[in-house]
Design a protein around this nucleic acid. Sequence first.
RNA 1: UCCUCAGUAGCUCAAUUGGCAGAGCAUCCGGCUGUUAACCGGAGGGUUGUUGGUUCGAGUCCAACCUGAGGAGCCA
Length: 449
Amino acid sequence: MKRHRIRDVLSSPPSDRPVTVCGWVRTKRTAKRFAFLAVNDGSSQDTLQLIVDQGTPAFTALDRVLTGAAVRARGVARASPGAGQRVEMQVDALDVLGPAPAEYPLQKKGHTLEFLRDVGHLRPRTNTFGAVFRIRNVLAAAVHEFFQQRGFVWAHTPIITGSDCEGAGEMFRVSAPASGGAEFFGRPAHLTVSGQLEAEFMAMALGDVYTFGPTFRAENSNTSRHLAEFWMIEPEMAFADLDDDAALAEDFLRAMCTAALERCGAELAFLEKHYDAASAAALRGLAESTFARLSYSEAADALRKAGAAFQIPHEWGQELASEHERYLTEQVCGGPVIVMNYPRAIKPFYMRVNDDGETVAAMDVLAPRIGEIIGGSQREERLPVLERRMDELGLDRTELSWYCDLRRYGSAEHAGFGLGFERLAQYVTGMANIRDVIPCPRTPGSIDF
RNA sequence: UCCUCAGUAGCUCAAUUGGCAGAGCAUCCGGCUGUUAACCGGAGGGUUGUUGGUUCGAGUCCAACCUGAGGAGCCA
């Protein structure tokens, strides 16, 4: 079907050229002599206004057109005499491709985000979710552009994994009923919780790599920041240390904000107007600023001085709680901050032990409003140190012998980080709940769409 | 998993101390010469999340359960 995208019709200079558009009706307003239709086809945040004159077959067809109907209109795009839009369409012929009855759940008036989650298959047709999913698309493209321009290789790490000791969280079991009770893969298999370990062996051959794909956690987390299925981005660089890692994380976040600002102006303006986030201003600030950097010990000092302000006071050696992370980024630094060199005891086995023996070369990027957005580290490249750490934490060395091989054969310093794509989308869109930045959110007890 | 809050028309929300269950939007009918989530007049639309209890009387009070949200923990 030959059609013009509404985005292109709206952005071209008004003329009387013929156009054909297809889309879904947002509102219908009828007067005695003509009717107005607002139609959206998903290509743009804006709707195209259609004018249908009385006495035409198109006007008769309007009897079958309610909010939500799919229509095809042929006519001319012209300058609008009305105040709300530059371009409108005078309709010559209107086809009702798919009528929507009165029970169509979406109205022209506002809905709550909770209600829209109950109609997850229809919510992309709203202004809000149209904006969110177009921004999500731009961010996904920008992820690849960022790494490809820097010569990183996209590494396709597995979704089904035989490893169950990555330590990143509870895993979903994978089984095949047809295998009659035997393990399909010869031993237990799970959905991946992280592509990092596989990305490391790719980096130790291809240099700079990144993963970008679905990841699964079987945690019973019920929060606005957790999903059981989410997309993760994990760059891994050979011959790189913690400072290189932090610099990459900072460049990456700036590039994501810049891409959204440059390509999603209308979407960001809509979300800023209708939701509480000052997102465009915050994005601009982040895109133009350099990130603050604190050592964990400096952060702990700052938190100790703030002492009484917290539900749970912080002491050196403890994890940063949500309230501590927010305090550091919102109060101490007034923007994103990279906290580096955490206590060894609270971090996983693969992080490189620093010369003080007490800390590891870890770094977390904390952002206002949502806390930790990136977590990364320089990896332990010294086999004896790595094996000591695995023993300390009770990990099975034979299970991870392939991982240790990377330190036996041509070991080199390397570093990387992990980033939840939906957390990034939350930050950019200002959506408060992570279930509202992915088309089909997977959370405990919920898999309807 | 823990704590707190909420559930009333298709949607968004009212309902005083326990005393006749209402409005806007949507739908249908009528009106309006350019509207902008149009506007004006009218109509239809309810087992108040479920089950049980207290009471002369329960949307309102009590209990359990279901669903959702916010916060915490875990983390990305």
